[in-house]
């Protein structure tokens, strides 16, 4: 099912659209709201105790930092591995 030329006749947009969700103002608002929520999840730790099963996981903002750094590491590892592993889509065709 990976044919580029598909047999399905899918309707297409007549022209560029200006959906409210894609407007720069909305996106800026989304970033602001998200940042506030992110900050709140860390600050909430002053009110709600996170039980540290292995000491460090009870530290302030450990989940946040750990999650962020792990994802950063995984993206970078994937990027580096991609250099060695990525091949054109028709690599196996012949």
């Amino acid at each position: 099912m990976s044919d580029r030329e598909s047999s399905v006749d899918c309707p297409r947009a007549a022209g560029p659209d200006n959906h409210w969700l894609t407007r720069p103002g909305t996106i800026r608002l989304l970033w602001i709201v998200s940042s506030v929520i992110l900050a709140l999840t860390v600050l909430a730790q002053f009110a709600i105790k996170i039980k540290g099963y292995f000491v460090v996981d009870g530290w302030l903002g450990f989940g946040a930092v750990f999650g962020f750094l792990c994802c950063a590491a995984m993206v970078l590892v994937a990027k580096v591995l991609g250099v060695a592993l990525k091949r054109p889509e028709d690599y196996y065709d012949d």
Binding site: L38, I48, K49, A64, G67, F68
Partner: peptide
Amino acid sequence: PGKVLFYLQLLLFSGLA
């Protein structure tokens, strides 16, 4: 509550990443 908060931090900051 503590576990929920831990996972929220973990996941939302993954989203930021």
